[in-house]
Amino acid sequence: MKQNKTKLSKFLYFIFFIMLFTFNGCVSYRHSVNVSSYSTNENIGRKYFLQVSEKKLKDKTITLQVQEFEKYIDIVLAQRGYIKVDNIKNADQYIVFDYDISAPQTRTYSYEEPVYDTVLRPYTRYKKIDGVYYPYTHWEREYEVVGYRTRVGTRTFYSKNIYINSFNRTKTKNIWQISGNITDGNGDLRYAFPYLVKGISGYIGTNSRQIINVIVPDDDLEVQMMKKGEISTSAVAK
């Protein structure tokens, strides 16, 4: 009887881990964006001229990348009532953006790993002799955890950042600024950028007064539509 209980217990553990694996597979990965914003709260109009930082503007090898990233920023600005102009003379705000990704950062960590081995376990069985049941000890080998050992592992992280600064048209006064950061094991800035933009979008033109953590699901609908270019921005004002 005890042997049957042991087998049942193992089966239930197996079912539990299968369900746990299935559940985790259905949970969307979440991007953690740290956001910090400042603003003078001045109302100077919403027409803007957007440009990447001077260093990236001069680098002709990343022109297409800059254009793609600029598109995402235009989308969230349009959603917040900003109107893009193609001439700074017609703008109320001169907005400059920049971005970067760190070199790989390796971190070590320790964890406890279970040690498995076979262990002899006694079980009571019964043998029928002349109509009488007599107990006897039956030994079986069980494969189970017999201890734990400390292991040391390494993980590689990348820090991805976005910076946006808004000035008046003459570039003499900073109106608002915002920054966002994602730190994870993915070294693809192009993949992370729309999540960065979505993470900071709710704090554009505001003063967060502290670092705010914004969670953006990997399957966020707005991000997916941004990537496909299915969210239209406002028409460029002339």
Rank of each mutant, 00 (worst) to 15 (best):
Y134F: 11
I162T: 05
Q67C: 06
R151M: 03
I73L: 14
K89D: 15
A91C: 13
S208M: 05
T106M: 03
E142M: 12
D184Q: 09
S201K: 10
R80M: 11
Q105P: 14
I75H: 05
S179A: 09
T124M: 03
S102A: 15
T183K: 05
I88C: 03
T150K: 00
R155Q: 05
Y99M: 13
K171M: 06
Y158L: 12
N168I: 01
E112T: 09
I75M: 06
Y82H: 11
V119D: 13
Q65S: 04
I129S: 13
N90F: 03
D188R: 12
D130F: 09
W176Y: 13
T63W: 04
G81Q: 10
S179T: 11
N181V: 08
N174S: 11
T118D: 02
W139M: 10
F97M: 02
N165F: 02
R149P: 00
V115N: 00
V119W: 04
G205I: 01
E113N: 14
Y111M: 03
L196N: 07
Q79S: 11
N90W: 00
K127F: 01
G131K: 12
K198C: 02
F193M: 10
I101P: 09
Q105L: 01
S208W: 02
T118W: 05
I204C: 07
Y116F: 15
Y163V: 03
I162C: 11
D130R: 10
V197I: 06
K171T: 13
E113C: 02
Y111N: 08
T118F: 06
H138M: 06
S102G: 15
T206L: 06
I178H: 13
R121M: 01
K71V: 01
K71I: 00
P104Q: 11
A91M: 08
R121V: 15
G202D: 11
I95F: 04
G187N: 15
I75V: 15
Y82V: 02
N87G: 07
A78P: 15
R107G: 06
V85K: 07
V119R: 10
Q79M: 15
Y99T: 10
G187D: 15
R141P: 10
K84F: 00
G81P: 11
L77E: 11
I83Y: 10
R151E: 07
I101G: 09
D92G: 01
T170V: 02
R141I: 00
Y136P: 14
R125G: 12
N168K: 05
Y94G: 10
E113Y: 06
I83K: 13
I62L: 07
I129K: 09
Y72R: 12
D98R: 08
I200S: 11
F97V: 04
V146L: 04
K160F: 06
G147K: 00
R151A: 02
E112C: 02
D130A: 08
S208V: 03
L120P: 14
S166C: 12
T108A: 07
A103D: 13
H138V: 07
W176V: 13
V76K: 06
I129F: 10
L64V: 01
E68D: 09
H138C: 04
V152L: 03
